[in-house]
Computed example of a mutant assay.
Amino acid sequence: MESTNKHNWRTKLHEIIYEADTPTGKLFDVILLVAILASIVLVMLESVNSFDEKYHAVLDISEWVITILFTIEYVLRIISVKRSLKYILSFYGVIDLLSTIPKYISLILGGTQALIALRALRLLRVFRILKLARYLGASNQLASAIKASRAKIAVFLFAVLIAAIIFGTIMYLVEGEENGFANIPKSVYWCIVTLTTVGFGDIAPQTPLGQFIATLIMILGYGIIAVPTGIVSAEYTKASNSDGKRKLSDEEHEQLKTVVLNTQCCVNCLAETHQDNAEYCHKCGCKLHHD
C-alpha cells in the first residue's frame, strides 16, 4: 500500500511538472515562466548602478527567493522521473542546473550572479505550453533550403569579400592615413561596414572622390542584402513545390487527420510529442499515465 501511494505521488508530481495538458500542469508552467522573467528583470535592474545602490537589499532577497524556488523545482524534477540521470544530463536538465547555481557560486566568487541571465534559456519551455512543437516541422523545410543554398551563398560571400578588399584598397589610396584610412585592413573593415549598411561612423571619407566611391558602395550594399534572401527563397519555394507535388497515400491522409500531439512526457525516458490517444511511449514503450 505504501509503495502504491509513493507511486501515485510521484506520478502526480510528474504530470504537474513535466506535462501541460492538465490545469495544474499549465498553472505550474505559467508560474515557472513568470518566475524566470522576474529573475531576468531582477538581474537587469541589478546591473543599473543607481538602482542597485538604492534597492540592493530588496534585489538580493528577491533573487535568493527565486533561486531557492528553482532549487526546489530542480530537485522535484529529479525525484519525479525513473531515470534521474537522464534528466540531469538532458538539455533542459543542464540548463536548469546552470540557471540555479550562479547565485550559490556568488557567495564564493563575486560577480557570477550575472550568469543568472542564463535562465532566459528556460523560456524555451514555452513551446510545450503553447503546443508549438507541432508547427516546427516547417523549420525543417527552411533548414533544408539553407543547406541546399550553402554552395551559392559561399560563392556570394567570397565575391563580397573580394569586392571589400578591392574597394578597401582603393579607399586607402584615395583617402590615405590623414583621413582615418591608416592601412588596408582598416580600409577593408570600413568597406565591409559600409556594404552591410551598418555605418558606425568611426571612419568617413573626406575627399570628393572618396565620398563618390562610398556612395557607390552604399548603393551596392542594398543590392547585396537582397541576394542571399533571394537564393534561400528560391530553394524554399522549390522544396515547397516538390512537397506539394508528392501524392500522399490514403494511410498518410488518415494520419494527418488523426495525429494530434500533446505535451505528455514519458516518466521513464522523458520523450515527448506523443499522440493524444497514445497509451505507450513511442520511444521506450513505457505506459503513459492518463487522468
Rank of each mutant, 00 (worst) to 15 (best):
A117F: 13
I31H: 09
G176D: 08
V30N: 08
P185S: 00
N8R: 11
P23M: 05
Y55V: 10
L89S: 14
G221D: 02
G111L: 03
V43H: 10
Y222L: 12
L45Q: 09
G93K: 06
K186E: 15
Y172S: 04
A182T: 13
S62E: 01
I88M: 09
L42G: 11
A148G: 09
L220E: 13
M218L: 14
N183A: 11
I166N: 07
I162H: 00
V43C: 11
N8C: 04
K54N: 10
L33E: 05
E2G: 05
F51D: 03
K147A: 12
Y236D: 02
R10M: 10
I31R: 04
V94G: 00
T22N: 06
L121T: 00
L98W: 05
D52Y: 14
Y135N: 11
I36W: 01
S144V: 09
C286A: 15
A120D: 02
P102K: 01
L261E: 13
A148N: 13
L124S: 11
C265W: 00
I40E: 03
L76S: 09
A226F: 12
R246L: 15
I101A: 03
F127W: 10
Y74D: 09
M1H: 14
K131R: 15
Y172D: 01
S50G: 01
G176N: 04
L85G: 07
G201H: 00
D250G: 12
L115W: 09
L13F: 06
N277E: 12
T112Q: 08
A114G: 15
D250Q: 14
V227K: 04
E251I: 10
H253T: 07
E53A: 14
L270Y: 07
Y189M: 14
I40N: 13
K287E: 14
V75R: 07
T273R: 06
C286L: 10
K131V: 00
L13I: 01
E235F: 04
I165K: 05
V188Q: 01
A151N: 15
T229C: 15
R125M: 02
Y135E: 12
L288G: 08
W64K: 06
S50N: 11
P205A: 02
T22H: 00
E254N: 11
E251C: 03
R134G: 10
W64Q: 04
N277R: 12
T71W: 10
I61T: 12
A138L: 13
Q255R: 13
I78R: 00
M218I: 14
L220N: 11
G25W: 04
L13E: 09
D60G: 02
E178G: 10
Y236A: 08
Y236L: 14
V126F: 08
H290V: 10
V198P: 01
T263W: 00
K287D: 02
Q264R: 15
K6E: 15
T263V: 05
T169H: 04
Q206F: 03
I170A: 07
T258R: 08
T22P: 06
K147L: 09
L157A: 03
L13T: 13
I162A: 09
G111T: 12
T100S: 07
H56C: 03
K103G: 03
S84D: 07
I224S: 10
Y104W: 15
R246N: 13
P208E: 05
L85V: 08
G201F: 01
L270R: 06
G137L: 11
L216A: 08
S3Y: 14
G110F: 04
I36N: 05
Y55S: 03
Q211W: 08
V227W: 02
A117G: 11
A117R: 14
I162Y: 06
K247D: 09
Y280C: 06
L136C: 07
L195P: 03
